[in-house]
Design a protein around this nucleic acid. Structure first.
Lengths: 247, 247
DNA sequence: CGTGTGTTTGATGAATTTCAAAGCAGGTGG
DNA sequence: CCACCTGCTTTGAAATTCATCAAACACACG
């Protein structure tokens, strides 16, 4: 029993930022279950900057928990233009959109040298049957993604350029903060163009938005280095979805 | 055994359009499992036009399969403005966004007198452990919602007003078609304002977009009555996401 | 020290919002 | 049956925001 506990501990530290596993481990597991978990998360895969973890249309093998690094996911419109649907940092999950058709709906590109933890999906589903909390967490992860997407729709549908940019920076800041990094100072991993694609704007508009935030002394930015000067000011900016003021 | 089959058949007809159940029933079930399914989907709930099935912040009890009618789901921005995140017709699922926090993230309003099939979530999760295909289908439903949302992001980020409207009409047409209704002629259940909120446009822009589609003889609309005159023409319009042509 | 990629800024134009007013349809009560 | 009300829709004109085009700049890298 004590060796089993050690085993679990090893898993926890080994994959300390895999959101699925983090949440399912605190429950009581039998030796056999631990072994199965072990086979599930044994692997680590490195992805070089600029390389694709998977592409639209690839058959679903695994979900991926980002262990280290930074990814973008994007889809293509019929005429070949790219819409970035999300940026994923360590501890976040990739590939949930593939379950629907057994093929990845988007393309995931590493924005820096990264490392992921592949979770073979059929195995994961099987395992989820025996581990209720794993099942529940998988459901939660998916649901969280849906909620996130809905808030992106709100952003796209109701916010102007500066507000979108402010919301974007705040979101990054908050996620970095949750992972123990500074929420005030950080480095962007993506280009202006990528930010623009994500926010439904052109890169020039992103630049101008940055200039505005600088003028208002809310944020300081040099290239991809961000310093948030006035967090509550930024929040206020997002809150005041000015479009169609009141009626 | 034959009574069991009948039982299953009764379920199937009773809830012929609940996507969860539709997909999990063709598998072999034991008598006990059928009974449990029965308790799960026994109920029918009517929702009057304009009434809320649930509101943002309500604790999650059930997911809902729309049996009859039409719903909209919306979220509110901090300043109180509404973003419609989706329209749900019969056979579609409501409430998936609530799993993330155990509270509904959006508000679901019936756009006409409707009927839903509540699926108590904890029961559903428990059941999913015993019925692998139910579990898998639940995962698929969630994933499909994610994919749908991503294509909405593409629409918001890359399409102009007329293209968005065309995409919207095509989507409705296709979903109605799948359910055995005409894909050429149908009646909108939502106002111009609701369409606008969904597509990230103002209601006046929707009106003008309709006028354009009429001029191009792609669609005929009188009030909420829609007749699609040129399906392939409409599709072409959506395909040509003209923004930033080529580079 | 050039070369290329990514970023910034300016000027112009197009698309969409906003404001305003009129039209239309359905329902209610006189 | 008509008049009227209300909510929804349509259309017009002006204002605003953002995209587009263009040029200069910055920085990293060979």
């Amino acid at each position: 029993m004590s060796s089993q506990v050690l085993h679990v501990h090893a898993l926890k530290t080994a994959c300390s930022n895999c959101s699925v596993l983090e949440l399912c481990l605190p429950i009581g597991l039998t030796g056999g279950e631990v072994e199965r978990l072990d086979t599930l998360i044994a692997q680590r895969v490195k992805v070089k900057k600029g390389a694709a973890l998977y592409r639209t249309g690839d058959p679903l093998r695994s979900l991926y928990a980002v262990r280290l690094g930074f990814f973008k996911t994007s889809i293509l419109s019929t005429d070949g233009r790219e819409q970035i649907t999300g940026f994923q940092m360590q501890g976040e999950m990739l590939g949930l959109d593939a379950i629907s058709t057994d093929h990845y709906a988007c393309t995931a590109i590493a924005l820096e040298d990264s490392e992921v933890c592949p979770l073979p999906f059929t195995l994961l589903e099987k395992l989820a049957r025996d581990l209720p909390s794993l099942q529940h967490n998988l459901n939660k992860l998916m649901s969280r993604e849906i909620v996130r997407d809905h808030s992106m729709l709100l952003l796209m549908g109701n916010m102007n350029a500066d507000e979108r940019l402010a919301a974007f920076l705040l979101n990054l800041s908050q996620r970095l903060n949750m992972r123990g990094y500074s929420s005030r100072e950080f480095v962007l991993r993506m280009s202006r163009e990528a930010i623009g694609s994500y926010l439904g704007l052109r890169l020039e508009t992103i630049c101008r938005g940055i200039a505005h935030l600088r003028e208002e002394e809310l944020v300081d930015m040099h290239g991809r280095n961000v310093t948030i000067l006035d967090l509550s000011g930024l929040k206020q900016k997002v809150a005041g979805c000015h479009r169609h003021s009141e009626q």
